[in-house]
C-alpha cells in the first residue's frame, strides 16, 4: 500500500513538506513579491543621503526596533503618532543594509517606547536628541530607555565644529571634559530627524477606524456636551519633553516657562504665535517646532492657559477664539 502515510515515510515527508512549501508560497512569498514590486516612494518624499543611511545602521546595531515601532495603524489611538495611517509607499525605500544584513524590520511589534514615524517633526531639536541619547533621564525623568554614552566622547577642548552637550551635572557621571557626540551619534540623530510622514499627492489619506474605549453609561459626561480639554495632559504630551514637568526647562538647551515674561505677559499673543509658528531666534537655545498643523485652537488655548497658571505663573486664561484670530492673522501675513 504505497498510499498509506503510516507506512510510506517517503510519501509522508514529501506531502508534509510539500503542503507547507505550497502554503508558504501562497501566504508569504507571493504577497511579499507583490508588495515589494508594486511600490514606490511618494513623490514628495525627501531624498535620503549617506549620513541618514549610516544613521539607520546605528539604529539597527543598537536594535532600537525592539522598543520603538514605526507604523501608524489605521485605528483612532494611533492618531497620536501621525497625521494619517501608514501605507506601503512609506516603506518603499526600506531595503537590505548590506550583503550580510537583511532589510531592517522597522515596523516593530512592541511599543515600549513611543512610535517614531513622525519623530523628526515631533522633536526637531538636535540638542534634545543628543542629551536624550547621552542619558534619556536628563530630559525625560520617567524614561526607561537605555543611555548610550558610547556614542559620545570627551574632549579637553571644543573646536568650532564640535557640538558640546550641556549635560546636567547629575548625569555627567564624573566626566569633567567637554562631552561631544561621535560621528555615529551625529548619523543616528540625522536618521531620527529624517523620520517624517510624507503628505499624499492628492492631500487625501485613508481614514482612521474608530476604535474607542467603551464609556460607562452615557449621561455621566459633561453637561456642556463638549469635553473640557486637559491642558496639563496636553502639555505633558507635547511640551514637557523639552520644557520639563516643572516648567523650568534645561539650562543651555530649552528655555524655562516658569517665570518667563513671554508666558506671563498680559497679552498672550507672543506666546500663542511661538506655539503656532515655532521659534529659532536665540542661539543659546534649541529650535522649537511649529504646532499650527498639529494642534487645534482649543488645544493650544488649553496648553497656554495651563502654562499661564501652573508653577508660579499667574496670568489670564487664553481662549480658543484668541488662538483662532492669531492663526488667521498669521495666515494673511504669510500669504501677502
Amino acid at each position: 500500500m504505497w498510499l498509506n502515510l503510516h507506512k510510506n515515510h517517503r510519501l509522508f515527508l514529501g506531502l508534509a513538506a510539500g503542503v507547507f512549501l505550497l502554503l508558504s508560497t501562497l501566504i508569504a512569498v507571493m504577497p511579499a513579491f507583490s508588495v515589494q514590486n508594486n511600490n514606490a516612494p511618494l513623490p514628495d518624499a525627501s531624498p535620503t543621503n549617506a549620513e541618514i543611511q549610516n544613521g539607520l545602521d546605528v539604529f539597527v546595531s543598537e536594535n532600537c526596533m525592539a522598543c520603538h515601532t514605526q507604523q501608524v495603524r489605521n485605528i483612532d489611538m494611533d492618531k497620536t503618532w501621525g497625521g494619517r495611517p501608514g501605507i506601503p509607499a512609506d516603506y518603499a525605500r526600506n531595503a537590505r543594509l548590506d550583503n550580510l544584513r537583511a532589510t531592517p524590520s522597522v515596523l516593530g511589534t512592541e511599543r515600549t517606547g513611543p512610535d517614531l514615524t513622525e519623530l523628526g517633526e515631533r522633536q526637531p531639536s538636535e540638542d534634545w536628541h543628543y542629551l536624550h541619547l547621552f542619558n534619556p533621564r536628563s530630559v525625560v525623568k520617567e524614561s526607561i530607555m537605555p543611555a548610550y554614552p558610547w556614542l559620545f566622547t570627551t574632549q579637553s577642548t571644543v573646536g568650532s565644529y564640535d557640538k558640546e552637550l550641556n549635560v546636567p551635572a547629575e548625569f555627567r557621571q564624573g566626566i569633567t571634559g567637554h562631552i561631544v557626540p561621535t560621528e555615529r551619534a551625529r548619523q543616528l540623530v540625522a536618521y531620527l530627524l529624517s523620520l517624517k510622514q510624507v503628505d499624499l499627492p492628492d492631500g487625501q489619506s485613508p481614514a482612521f477606524l474608530e476604535y474607542k474605549k467603551p464609556k460607562p453609561a452615557a449621561g455621566s459626561g459633561t453637561a456642556s456636551g463638549e469635553a473640557v480639554l486637559d491642558g496639563a495632559a496636553l502639555y505633558a504630551q507635547h511640551c514637557q519633553a523639552c520644557h520639563q514637568a516643572g516648567g523650568e526647562g534645561l539650562k543651555g538647551a530649552f528655555p524655562p516657562l516658569k517665570g518667563s515674561p513671554i508666558v506671563n505677559d498680559a497679552n498672550a499673543e507672543m506666546l500663542v504665535r511661538i506655539v503656532l509658528q515655532g521659534y529659532d531666534a536665540r542661539a543659546e537655545y534649541a529650535v522649537m517646532p511649529p504646532f499650527a498643523q498639529k494642534l487645534s485652537d482649543a488645544e493650544i488655548a488649553a496648553i497656554a492657559t495651563h502654562e499661564r497658571s501652573a508653577w508660579s505663573n499667574r496670568a489670564e486664561k487664553v481662549t480658543p477664539e484668541l488662538v483662532r484670530q492669531i492663526r488667521a492673522a498669521i495666515e494673511t501675513e504669510t500669504t501677502q
Binding site: L13, A17, V29, A32, V35, Y91, A95, R96
Partner: peptide, 30 residues
C-alpha cells in the same frame, strides 16, 4: 518530528532569502 524538522528548514530559507524582502515585503515575511 519529521514534519517540524522539514518545516523549520523551509521556514528559515524563506526568511533569509533576500529577493522579496524590500519595503513591506520584509514585513510580510517577518
Amino acid at each position: 518530528m519529521l514534519g517540524a524538522l522539514s518545516w523549520v528548514i523551509i521556514l528559515s530559507v524563506i526568511a533569509y532569502l533576500p529577493f522579496y524582502q524590500n519595503g513591506l515585503g520584509e514585513t510580510v515575511i517577518q
